[in-house]
Amino acid sequence: MLGKHAKLERTAIGFAIGIIIVASIGGLIEIAPLFTIDETVEEDPDMRVYTPLELAGRNIYIREGCYACHSQMIRTLQDEVERYGPYSLAVESQYDHPMLWGSKRTGPDLARLGGKYSDQWHVAHLLDPRSLVPQSVMPAYRWLARNDLDVSDMPLHLSAQKKVGVPYTDDMIANADEDAFGQANPDSEAADGFFERYGFEANARYFDGDRRKLTEMDALVAYLQSIGTLSEAASKNNEITKTIPDEGGAE
């Protein structure tokens, strides 16, 4: 064995390929279960997908780097559940490509944000955080209200989402741009199509309060109001178990 090793070392290529093979066999065996880990995720047949407007808002959340300061993952710890709400379940982020669990809370967790505040609160907060929370260190995002939302590419976004596994129908993909507009303009004709495809529960409102135009603010607020509302699994789960699996993750 040792003689072989010395010979192996003599050729760098052999040595490097040796390292690659030896280490990656170990690595592959170890990470193989990660590729099937989604099998372990609880099921929620009633879970809905993001609407096109919410997805556009989610992309703005990503673009602005909100995840750098806000987590979306409530841990199984007593104080977190009391502060933020039911702890997060894996199923809740099954349509999140990519996930936005975050790793730093410069600001509070947002996993249960949807429905917690009014649209007006969100708009005011994003325009000037310190007008509502004087000690906040969050930046103001005034350009969101100025920028028109570009929805023309939404069909492309939905079809890519479908390719990675989110169950959008062909109908939803084809009308994604219309639906994004409709959700933020409930009195328009486009809204009818939106209701038809996404059901009446899905929120349709003038999110930014401005009826004249569709802005990035509309999209972001629509997304913020949707966080944690796609699935009811977590609140149901919390009602049943009442207790937190102390010291334990979701098994």
């Binding site: 064995m1 030896v22 066999i25 170990g26 065996i29 170890e30 193989a32 279960p33 099937t36 880990i37 099998e39 372990t40």
Partner: peptide, 25 residues
């Protein structure tokens, strides 16, 4: 079928043994 259980069990047993052997080597 190769399901999650199987892969996990494999990683936790043979994977571990394999790594130990290589490290020992």
């Amino acid at each position: 079928t190769i399901d999650h259980e199987t892969l996990t069990a494999f990683a936790k047993t043979y994977g571990l043994i394999y790594m130990m052997i290589v490290f020992f080597g």
